[in-house]
Design a protein around this nucleic acid. Sequence first.
DNA 1: AAATAACTGGAAGAGGCCTTCCAGTTAGGC
DNA 2: GCCTAACTGGAAGGCCTCTTCCAGTTATTT
Lengths: 224, 224
Amino acid sequence: MTRTADGSGGDGATARPRRADAERNRQRALAAAAEVFAESGIDAPMSDVARRAGVGIATLMRNFPTREDLVAATFNDAMAAYAEAAATAAAAVDPWEGFCDFIRYVCRIPCHDRGFAQVLTTMFPGVERLEAQRQRALRDFIRVVSRAKAAGRLRADFSPHDLPLFLMASGGVARSHTPALATAGHRLAGYLLQACAAPGTAPLPAAPPPRALYQALEAGHARD
Amino acid sequence: MTRTADGSGGDGATARPRRADAERNRQRALAAAAEVFAESGIDAPMSDVARRAGVGIATLMRNFPTREDLVAATFNDAMAAYAEAAATAAAAVDPWEGFCDFIRYVCRIPCHDRGFAQVLTTMFPGVERLEAQRQRALRDFIRVVSRAKAAGRLRADFSPHDLPLFLMASGGVARSHTPALATAGHRLAGYLLQACAAPGTAPLPAAPPPRALYQALEAGHARD
DNA sequence: AAATAACTGGAAGAGGCCTTCCAGTTAGGC
DNA sequence: GCCTAACTGGAAGGCCTCTTCCAGTTATTT
């Protein structure tokens, strides 16, 4: 699983197998980053990551020259798991169950991994692998949605692009790692699922054009 | 309206009426803070506020020794308006209309004032005036809720303490001032209202104990 | 219009974070 | 076991923000 990360840019030929301690440090950095980002978000100080990994800052910076590099490498597996969850939901026996399970899964994410929640609601145009997984998840989620609609359980005006909306909403609740906020997050998921159930009793306000929405989420950092 | 802010700690007797230019600067600082905080949130650099106000940093700091002082003074009126909106909702002819209007109003706030959204979802135990208004709003909202329930339009398991939940969710969507995100915020409000309508088709996940919830929102800064 | 107390803004100091550089250390080939 | 290239960690420099201090300016009083 963790083997998927490679990082040293395209050494197609077996140039040389990398020194063992260096690789060990790289892995330690990734593990530390996973912990720190989960707790404090992807803007956490690099020095925190280095300290927790037990390596120097320079070592961290050499392996991951930019913060984006580290973030991408750290959440590669999580993103794959996310895409996998969407695929599972698309293959669920009961379409509505599949939909509900996936939404609940998604709403739970910010409670235990703040960093990953940020990654899920931020576009990284420069990181192909991450975006490819996100695309895959979206494609599968589109299937989830159409199946649930076909089964008559999901309201017709639900849009697959409401997914980032739900993610951002959950992220807003899970601003820290408090049990109370985790409970609140579950409750929000409950409300949202209730709202999704067919038939919608009243029309929903229009959704923003997907292009505009995703553009607003680009990595210019969610800050104004 | 703006007269309500006083700041110079309790000069009960007419000690001396404060120099005119000083008062002018104070007002300019408040106006600038309102703009800056609305755009960038209450963690915006103090120097930005000073620059926009056209005063020196020292002047700003003398009027408002801590950031909390400035935040409290800046959002005093907005908080009063918020409480007023709750009162209006509690007096609405149609209880359900009152409820919906208020929720929509609340969900719109983060779209045009990021700072105020943060204030609404952060407790400031040291700022009595702010907390008093918040209490007042909550009391009126409790009336709104019970009236809407009595009218049979609001699901029975809705809790008045879900209000901060909705606020945080909206805040999560309105991470920047993009039209797309404003539209998304409206849509979220639509979903939430749908979910609130009686009868709930399925029980909601339990809410966190209010004490724990509000504790998690205390001004230890929404960071971890 | 002079005296004075209130008020002003910039500069300097402190702390945090990111980035770069370099002298020292260590793994791995021979 | 030694040599060399790979790798290491800390320290220094740059930038940003908050806070404090002080010499200069200005409104107000008489």
